[in-house]
Design a binder for these strands. Structure first.
Lengths: 347, 347
DNA sequence: GTTCTGCGCTTAATCGTTTAATCAACTGCA
DNA sequence: TGCAGTTGATTAAACGATTAAGCGCAGAAC
């Protein structure tokens, strides 16, 4: 029943070469004292046999599983692929595997997901928390990726600065009235982005903020955002706090016959997969996920290596904010000095 | 250095209760012969201490890691979240963890990713192959999720039937000329979908197929698809083989002043996250990922349980094709009998 | 000549779990 | 009373790796 592991193990190599398992272990790990000649013999023989060390045996002995957990707020989030990809890549470069856990549902689900990972013996975990939740430290090192204003945050994109990039870009194009379009006003990330935009406005500019989720609880999911009316009121730029909302804004405006970027400009955040291929392609701001993942993973691994006691701790990193990069495409253009006449008539 | 596992283990429970570890193990697993009273005492004491079994110890002894691998062709694929979510959910319901591996890059990367998983000792793996690649069986059971026409496929959505759903829907709306818009003509999935559409056309209807990747190698990435011209030629429906291409088509048409669904209809595949929120919302066809994941995972686990020898095999399932569901939204409507005059003038 | 040191390898313990084998005590039955 | 069968527990041997400690033997130090 219980499966024999197919491959060779240390003792098989040892007996086949007439040495002890300890020597083989030392030769392969380079730790103890073994003569160079023997090291060479052992290594080549191991390679020949296609030896792969048993993670189970190693984990049992060392107390390290060589696996990191990744807890994601909502796997269905379109940003998730990039995060997972970056974390997996960083972890695997450091010799770690990545176990995923989906915390869809409420905060309880998030805690359960964390527990599942702990039970599986992960050495540490990266958590992208549900909006505005605080991670109560699990019994292993935890790195949090959210935004600077989240308590316990380890590293994240500088969402605030990203917002400023958008604001100065729009200011430079001559826009005076900006409509910020967000999804949920409880999201730390979205709040930071909105704050950055407001902080980056030049004198004489003003902004207003529209929270979609709030609107939808009144009007129903998938409702119109009423952007044409906003355009009629003089808003010439629509700065969405995520590309998903930017896409929603863009298509609604186009449907109502308002030209982008001719009449109004639309910008987003995150450079999601569709941003370059829609017409007009989206001006947006991109997080450097690879860098963020590298920082999070190496902070985690540092902590794992130094802490013998396996206590649960929120790890910290030197650089907490990674700059975002503005990507100018075709959905943003010069502010149209006079609102379209047809729009005025509609009012 | 080597960390003491924080929690209690079997022997701690055993000594604390004055029984042997074997008895504790039996009591918790319900396997050996232990008196009901003692079982109760042991279980409650274990719960009280917050005992969690060491996966490493168990894995070493049983030869099973309790972990499945998930290999994805391109994590950045927008469909990925749903797949990962469904697999994770199915696996975790069956008591398994999920280790991810990204095979971004070429087929070599895919093989490397598979090897990494094997080295980590996964009991089996789910592979969503890169387009048109064949999985050379790894040294553990493998379930393949792609499409029925892929050799070795275990289970997948019935892409062909999904295509027929689209075709009959469009036929019912009176469309006669359908432009099928795909990305890559080497993708088995896209070919099956396109085949289904063609097979579902009513007499008197005709279709043509546009492969974006082929067009882009000539004209450059992000180029216009020239859909307005196609509309001028009499195409009234644009059936994209994925929502990403549908979105691209939709926005290009809107930008050119062609009304959707007034002038032409647009449909997609996969019901990706933006489909319900763009304007007009996308008519599309949805895969039942939860069912697919359940089938794949349970086929995998069945094979793991029955095979003692841990050989690498492509597992098979009873139901190979899971029906797709047509979701009618607002991007598809009655065929416009007369093409728009302005369009005709443009020709 | 004796003690010390370093080298190269082996011995043996250990991580936590599972499970086959064993054993003592008790039951039922002739 | 003696024997077989059952019950409820223990003993002990794995699984595969790591690693501290030990051991014999050389050459150096005194």
């Amino acid at each position: 029943m219980a499966s024999q592991r197919s491959g060779p193990n240390l003792s098989r190599i040892a007996t086949s070469l007439g040495v002890s398992v300890a020597t083989v272990s030392n030769a392969l790990s380079g730790k103890g004292r073994v003569s160079d000649a023997l090291i060479e013999r052992i290594r080549s023989h191991a390679a020949e046999l296609g030896y792969v060390p048993s993670q189970a045996g190693r984990a049992l002995r060392t107390g390290r599983s060589g696996v990191l957990g990744l807890v994601l707020p909502d796997i269905a989030n379109p940003l998730f692929p990039k995060i997972a990809q970056a974390i997996e890549s960083a972890a695997s470069a450091a010799g770690y595997g990545v176990l995923i856990a989906d915390s869809r549902g409420d905060i309880t689900a998030q805690t359960e997901a964390i527990n599942r990972l702990v039970e599986r013996g992960v050495d540490g975990m990266v958590v992208v928390p549900r909006r505005a939740t605080r991670i109560s430290a699990a019994s292993c090192p935890v790195a949090v990726i959210d935004t600077a204003s989240t308590p316990g945050n380890t590293v994240a994109a500088d969402h605030w600065q990203g917002g400023r990039e958008i604001a100065t870009h729009l200011a430079g194009l001559g826009h005076k009235q900006i409509l910020i379009i967000g999804n949920n006003h409880e999201s730390n990330v979205q709040n930071d982005r909105a704050g950055g935009i407001r902080a980056g406005l030049a004198p004489g500019m003003r902004s207003e903020t529209l929270w979609i989720e709030r609107l939808e609880t009144e009007t129903g999911a998938g409702c119109r955002l009423g952007l044409a009316e906003k355009a009629g009121q003089g808003f010439t730029a629509f700065a969405a706090l995520s590309d998903l909302q930017a896409l929603r804004a863009l298509t609604e405006l186009q449907q109502e016959g308002i030209s982008v970027p001719g009449d109004v400009s639309v910008t987003g955040f995150d450079d999601l997969i569709w941003s370059p291929v829609v017409t007009p392609s989206l001006t947006t701001v991109r997080m450097d996920m690879d860098t963020i993942a590298d920082i999070a993973v190496s902070a985690l691994i540092d902590r794992i290596n130094e802490s013998g006691t396996r206590e649960g701790v929120l790890v910290t990193a030197e650089t907490e904010r990674v700059p975002m990069q503005l990507i100018i495409r075709h959905s943003s253009g010069r502010a149209n000095p006079a609102p379209k006449i047809s729009e005025m008539e509609n009012m």
